[in-house]
Simulated assay, not measured.
Amino acid sequence: MQKKSASPKPHGAPRMAQHQVRIIGGAWKRSLLPVVDALGLRPTPDRVRETVFNWINHQLGGDWADVSVLDPFAGSGALGFEAASRGAASVTMIDSHGPAVRQLEANRDKLKAGNIGILRADALAALRDMAARGQRFDVIFLDPPYQQELLAKSLPLCAALLKEDGMVYAEAEAILPLEEGGETPEWLQGWELVRADKAGMVYYHLLKLHKNKT
């Protein structure tokens, strides 16, 4: 949630409504997209998205042209639309909530985003099905609802879905215990922490599989 500011907006800056997200980079920079008002839906804040996409851009060497992206808990679509705006070859968004899916489709159509595919499905079931069909991605966004252990259930499934040198962005309500010398939970074993940071109550991480992990 953005903090209110007494300072005036810069001339020409779009006015943010309560249920909107703003694309911050790429071809659709500054575009405002409506978001459904749904329980547990919390678009990734601008500040976090800017940092995360700087991390990913560095890992990719700035080249999104051949990048395939999966966003299995799409919600507002803020992360997926951001990747598509920056030129990702394909972005697959998944959500189980009907109104959210319809809004994602409307926003895709508004942007004429031919590189975005949208699927209404249970995220965990979809991850298993995609792995079984041999689908692979360069970047996977994991931003599930909190307090449901969905990150612990979905991250292990991503190991079979990543291309070589692929990466996972994971957002959580607490820091992931991946520091060297600490005790790593079973669901985090095999993962390497590339970058991590915190903004307010949001903890966000960029992960890769250890090189010896198959």
Rank of each mutant, 00 (worst) to 15 (best):
G61R: 11
W55G: 08
A88N: 10
F141V: 04
A131L: 03
H19S: 05
G190W: 02
D122N: 15
A125D: 13
R86L: 03
N107Y: 06
K211G: 14
P144Y: 14
L207F: 12
W191H: 07
L193P: 01
L111D: 10
A13P: 00
D71S: 00
K110Q: 13
V202G: 06
D46P: 06
K9R: 15
A100C: 11
G80D: 04
K208H: 14
Y203I: 05
L33F: 08
C158A: 11
G190L: 10
G200W: 13
T184R: 13
H97R: 08
T184S: 03
Y204Q: 04
V67T: 15
D143N: 14
S7D: 05
R47M: 09
Q135M: 13
K213Y: 14
V69E: 04
R108F: 00
N115Y: 05
T92W: 10
F137D: 04
Q148A: 15
A123T: 07
P185M: 00
E183A: 14
A113E: 10
Y169C: 04
G26M: 08
N107R: 04
H11Y: 11
V69Y: 00
A100F: 07
P144G: 01
P43K: 00
E50S: 05
L41F: 08
S76E: 00
L79K: 08
V168P: 04
T214F: 10
L162W: 07
G114H: 15
V202H: 06
Q2G: 07
A121L: 02
V139S: 05
R195G: 03
P14L: 09
E171H: 15
W64A: 01
F81E: 01
G134K: 11
Q148R: 15
M16I: 13
D138G: 10
S68D: 14
T92C: 12
H11A: 11
T44V: 12
A123N: 02
S90G: 09
T51W: 03
T51H: 02
E180W: 01
I23Y: 05
K3I: 10
D143H: 04
A106R: 14
Q189F: 02
